[in-house]
């Protein structure tokens, strides 16, 4: 394997594989977290919003990767001083963070696998629609990871980092209409939901799966805004994240 692949693998081993291997109980939490909302929505809607909830679970899992990355990176930086150890080594920041981000996906892989199976069983979409939904998921992942890295690099304490995690999770995946259609939110509050990139992601995904009707103009606007917000968060991540301290 190449040098960069070894460096990526180091982050993946430390941040997910060794943790799961040495403490398998952590897997239960990663599975339960996105599924718990799905089950709740399923019961409350009498099964009518199962498709929305499955897609919501996938979006939340992707977005949670970034919020988890934020707290993990902060934990390594502030508690273990691992970032100092790695900064003073041949690893470059992009590779370190990419490895950590992939490890978050790997960590969530049991939940992702279950959600994909449920998606295959209960959401009927063409390969092209699936491709569109996959693109939305990738954008969600990149957005959250960028935000997570930027916040981790400026957080000075794990308590501050946990606060960021809870804030991001609430603002971007619990409050916005991720597990259900936006039409269920009364109109004055609907505008607030549009402040979150996850709202656009879920609208696009729900539309692609035939769960929400959107005009082609609205669909295009959603894509433009989602891509724009993702680009902004990526810019924030790259621009404001700190590797060597100032």
């Amino acid at each position: 394997m190449g040098r960069v692949a070894n460096q990526l693998l180091a982050s993946i081993l430390v941040n997910s594989i060794y943790e799961m291997k040495n403490y398998p109980v952590v897997l239960v939490n990663t599975v339960l977290s996105p599924l718990s909302f799905l089950i709740l929505i399923f019961f409350v809607s009498d099964g009518k919003l199962l498709g929305d909830a499955i897609e919501g679970g996938l979006i939340m899992t992707m977005f949670s990767s970034g919020t988890s990355l934020q707290s993990d990176l902060s934990h390594y930086k502030n508690d273990f001083k691992l970032q100092d150890i790695v900064v003073g080594s041949p690893t470059i920041p992009g590779v370190y963070v990419a490895g950590m981000a992939i490890s978050e996906l790997l960590y969530s892989s049991p939940a992702i696998a279950i959600l994909i199976v449920l998606f295959g069983l209960f959401v009927h979409a063409t390969p092209l629609q699936v491709l569109g939904i996959a693109a939305v998921m990738v954008l969600m992942f990149l957005t959250s990871v960028s935000l997570g890295f930027a916040l981790a690099s400026i957080s000075a304490d794990i308590v501050q980092s946990y606060a960021y995690t809870r804030l991001l999770s609430t603002v971007f995946s619990t409050l916005p209409p991720v597990y259900y259609p936006i039409t269920l939110i009364p109109l004055p509050f609907r505008y607030l939901a549009y402040l979150s990139p996850t709202t656009y992601a879920s609208e696009i995904a729900q539309n692609l799966a035939g769960l929400l009707q959107l005009s082609s103009t609205m669909f295009a606007i959603d894509w433009v805004i989602l891509l724009g917000l993702s680009a902004v968060f990526l810019w924030i991540g790259v621009r404001h994240a700190r590797w060597r301290e100032k």
Binding site: L9, A10, Y23, F80
Partner: peptide
């Protein structure tokens, strides 16, 4: 600097060497 609690010494040192580029 602290050792990562959920890894073993072999796992932690091995990972560090991988960050340095080794297989």
């Amino acid at each position: 600097g602290r050792t990562i609690s959920w890894t073993t010494p072999t796992q932690m040192i091995g990972s560090y060497l991988m960050w340095r580029g080794l297989g």
